[in-house]
């Protein structure tokens, strides 16, 4: 019997919004799939897409990057810079044959516990449909 695919999803959450949002999800008892492994970063702007590639290399089937809504970055513009970088990196992934849907981004504020749980649910479903990432298996 085929083992059910349980995806590994790596999340990079910004300290000021999304990490607090994820916290709120927990304290508000909103459920979300346990596939997500979160790493707190100070700002999405400090995320180097190489961290995303490394997550894939080390076994992630999908990656989520989540930060403050546009205009609400604690450091004024970190999330705008992240958006550009991630947009370009998604295009690069697609060009070498990796489905860009495996790299997701969301804006979740500290008060959006419900949204965070929905984002995680939706992304987990997406990655489940895509199946395991085998590109970095060797």
């Amino acid at each position: 019997m085929l083992k059910k695919f349980d995806p590994n999803i790596m999340a990079f959450l910004c300290n000021w919004c999304s990490y607090a949002g994820a916290d709120l999800t927990g304290t508000s008892h909103f459920h979300y799939p346990p596939n997500l492994k979160a790493i707190r970063v100070m700002c999405t702007g400090r995320i180097n897409p190489l961290m995303v590639a490394a997550a894939f290399r080390h076994g992630a089937d999908g990656v989520l990057i989540s930060g403050c809504h546009p205009g609400e970055c604690h450091y004024m513009e970190g999330n705008y810079l992240a958006r550009r970088k991630i947009f370009v990196f998604r295009n690069l992934l697609e060009f070498v044959g990796i489905n860009p849907e495996r790299l997701q981004m969301s804006w979740v504020s500290a008060s959006e516990g419900k949204k965070f749980s929905n984002v995680v649910k939706e992304i987990t479903e997406k990655i489940k449909k895509l199946g395991p990432l085998t590109t970095f298996d060797e």
């Binding site: 546009p70 705008y80 958006r83 550009r84 947009f87 804006w107 979740v108 984002v119």
Partner: peptide, 16 residues
């Protein structure tokens, strides 16, 4: 530099 600048109107439709 490209990644040291941004435009508020940069593509956003791939983001939740």
């Amino acid at each position: 530099p490209l990644f040291a600048s941004f435009n508020p109107k940069d593509p956003n439709d791939f983001i939740f």
